[in-house]
Computed example of a mutant assay.
Amino acid sequence: MENQFKLTNSKEIIAYLAQQYPNCFTVEGEAKPLKIGIFQDIISRLDNSEVLSKTKLRAALRAYTMSWRYLHSIKEGYSRVDLDGNPHEIINQEQMEHAQQQLKESKEKAKMRFKERAKESRKITTLKIGDFVKVIVGNKPIKVQIINIEKEHIKVKVGVGMELTVKPEHIINK
């Protein structure tokens, strides 16, 4: 039982699938549209393998098929491929439009996350060690003094001497 579920993260699982089924999965370059039902095909080929769990496989396939490079591969008229790289059903316009919508939404979310990080980064650069600020701890803001500023966290000292590490978004004012 020492081998039970060796592969646990999505990147490792996709690398394993690319090694096992190189005509279907890739870790770099252009992705190929996968046959609908590929999960079941993989499960039947692995036949109770202890390399990965069904849950982790499902999550890895979800991550793979939601990646930007995969969504770019979904084009009307292109064939989906099975595990051996053989062509299967043709992608229709509705499937292509769905993939394009998913891609658009994913890019918008990434843009929003980037803006939030930039905003937090600007907030950190305006703070200085020794400044007194208020932070939200629980559901109440408390007055603290900044004692250290790190890349993504700020160390603060509460009046009684206790030190806390907080995220920039928990700081509410100077």
Rank of each mutant, 00 (worst) to 15 (best):
T8F: 05
T55F: 09
K35N: 10
Q19H: 14
S53N: 04
T8N: 13
I13S: 08
L61N: 03
A63C: 12
R62H: 13
I14E: 09
S10Q: 14
L52Q: 01
S10L: 10
E28I: 11
Y16C: 00
K35G: 01
F39Y: 14
P33K: 01
E28R: 15
S73Y: 08
M66S: 13
I36A: 06
A59E: 11
L34H: 00
R58T: 10
T26M: 06
A18D: 03
P22D: 02
D47N: 15
P22Y: 06
S53F: 00
M66Q: 14
Y64R: 08
I14A: 05
H72W: 12
K56T: 02
R62T: 12
A63P: 10
L34K: 01
R62M: 13
L34M: 08
V51A: 00
I38D: 00
L34S: 04
R45Y: 03
G77W: 04
K32Y: 07
S49G: 00
T55K: 13
A18P: 04
A60C: 05
Y16F: 13
A59R: 12
R69H: 12
L34C: 03
A18H: 00
I43T: 03
Y70E: 01
L7S: 00
V27G: 07
K35V: 02
S49A: 04
R62P: 08
E12Q: 13
L57C: 02
I13R: 00
T65A: 00
V27A: 07
I38P: 00
W68G: 12
I74G: 06
F25E: 04
E12C: 02
G29K: 05
A18G: 06
K32H: 10
R45T: 05
N9M: 07
V27C: 14
A63H: 14
K75S: 03
N23L: 05
E28F: 14
E30Q: 15
V27Q: 13
D41R: 07
E76S: 12
T26I: 02
R69K: 12
L52I: 03
E12P: 00
Y16V: 07
V51C: 04
K11L: 12
S49N: 01
V51I: 02
Y16W: 13
Q20S: 11
Y16A: 05
A63S: 15
Y64N: 04
L52D: 02
V51N: 01
A60M: 08
M66D: 12
R45M: 07
L71P: 14
L34D: 01
D41S: 05
E50T: 08
K11R: 13
T26N: 05
Y70V: 05
C24G: 07
Q20H: 06
K6G: 09
E76W: 11
Y70R: 02
G37R: 08
S10P: 15
I14F: 02
Y64C: 07
R62F: 15
S10F: 10
Y78T: 09
K32N: 10
T8P: 00
M66H: 15
C24V: 05
S49W: 01
L71F: 06
F25Q: 07
L17S: 07
K6Q: 11
T65M: 15
T55Q: 11
D47C: 10
E76T: 13
I38C: 00
R69Y: 12
K32C: 03
S73A: 11
L71S: 09
R62Y: 15
H72E: 15
L57F: 06
Q19A: 11
